[in-house]
C-alpha cells in the first residue's frame, strides 16, 4: 500500500492532518490526500467541523473576561499587602 492510499483509508491520519492544518499548515500533497479522504468519509467531515469549533471556543474562553465573583479572599490580600509594604520599607 503506498502512502496515498494509507491516508485515503485512514481516519487516524486524516484527523491528525485536520488538526495540524488548523494551526500549522500541511503540505500540498497532504492537502490533496485529505481532500480525497473527506470526499468519502462523512465522519471525519464532522470531526473537522467540531475540531475547528473547539479551537474557537477555547480561544474565546480565555480571551473573555472571567466572572468578577472569582477573586482572592480578603485575608489573603491583606497579608499580601503587608508583605509588599514590608518589602518596600526594607529597601
Amino acid at each position: 500500500m503506498n502512502e496515498l492510499t494509507k491516508v485515503i483509508y485512514n481516519c487516524r491520519k486524516a484527523t491528525y492532518l485536520i488538526d495540524k492544518r488548523f494551526i500549522g499548515g500541511i503540505t500540498f500533497r497532504e492537502t490533496v490526500e485529505l481532500r480525497i479522504h473527506l470526499i468519502g468519509c462523512k465522519v471525519c467531515g464532522i470531526y473537522m467541523e467540531q475540531s475547528k469549533r473547539i479551537n474557537e471556543m477555547v480561544r474565546q474562553l480565555l480571551k473573555s473576561e472571567k466572572p468578577p465573583e472569582i477573586k482572592l479572599d480578603e485575608s489573603f490580600k491583606e497579608a499580601l499587602q503587608a508583605q509588599i509594604t514590608a518589602e518596600i520599607n526594607k529597601n
Binding site: 474562553l61 480565555l62 472571567k66 468578577p68 472569582i70 477573586k71 482572592l72 489573603f76 490580600k77 499580601l80 499587602q81 509588599i84 509594604t85 518589602e87 518596600i88
Partner: peptide, 27 residues
Amino acid sequence: PQNWVSAYADFLYRYAISRVNNEDQAR
C-alpha cells in the same frame, strides 16, 4: 507597588486560575 494588590490582585488571580486550574497554585 503599594497599589498593586488593590489594583491587580484579582485580575492576576483570574488570569492564573484559567491557566493552572488550581486555586492554591493560582494564589
